[in-house]
């Protein structure tokens, strides 16, 4: 297994994984839209143990997280959003989904200054709800009725990302440079 950032060339097989696994599907362009708007936020899990079949093999995607920043946040607070997360049934129990999510969350804070991350999940999806709530610490905000095309409701969930900010601040060793402070480069040379 290899967990790494998504690249444009991964997208056909990400789309394939999505079509094979999930009822919510998207055009390739929607994946591109994520990859080109917030390239730091989407990750893939790649099966690196497959023998090559041709010189043009693409790495097989067994899991992915497709994430974005909310462009016009209703509450005015910068935050991320998980558009789609999937791990192949054959590759479960390795903690892939959790690892993908953690990478994405870190980048949301570092690159885009996100304060929290939100997502929707089918109310019947016990395994996913367990991951979000018990493993990652998401809280259920509300239920959105008939969110999905087949009429199922969604839980709208949210995770505060302050704990990541906290960690980053500690790592930086007491915040030598405050956010927003202008760098010392000579102006107007």
């Amino acid at each position: 297994m290899d967990i790494r950032l998504l690249r444009a060339s991964d997208i056909p097989l990400i789309q394939h994984a999505n079509l094979e696994n999930l009822p919510e599907n998207y055009f390739l362009k929607y994946y591109l839209y994520h990859a080109l708007s917030w390239p730091q936020l989407s990750y893939v899990a790649v099966d690196v143990s497959r023998p090559q079949k041709s010189p043009y093999d693409y790495p097989k995607i067994v899991g992915y997280v497709l994430a974005k920043m909310e462009e016009e946040p209703a509450d005015g607070v910068q935050h991320g959003h998980i558009t789609s997360l999937s791990v192949m049934r054959t590759h479960r129990r390795l903690g892939i989904a959790e690892k993908l999510m953690r990478q994405s969350q870190l980048a949301m804070v570092e690159t885009f200054g996100a304060h929290y991350v939100s997502l929707h999940v089918r109310v019947s999806n016990k395994a996913a709800i367990h991951l979000y709530r018990d493993t990652l610490g998401f809280k259920t905000e509300r239920t959105e009725s008939k969110y999905y095309a087949d009429g199922e409701d969604a839980f709208s969930m949210k995770l505060d990302l302050d704990f990541i900010r906290e960690q980053l601040r500690e790592e930086e060793g007491g915040g030598e440079e405050k956010e927003g402070k202008e760098s010392e480069k000579n102006a107007g040379k």
Binding site: Y26, F27, K29, Y30, Y33, K146, Y147, Y148, A149, A154
Partner: peptide
């Protein structure tokens, strides 16, 4: 589009 999910994607595109 029927679902909120689809509407979001359609709007973005």
């Amino acid at each position: 589009a029927k679902s909120a999910e689809d509407r979001k994607a359609a709007a973005a595109l």
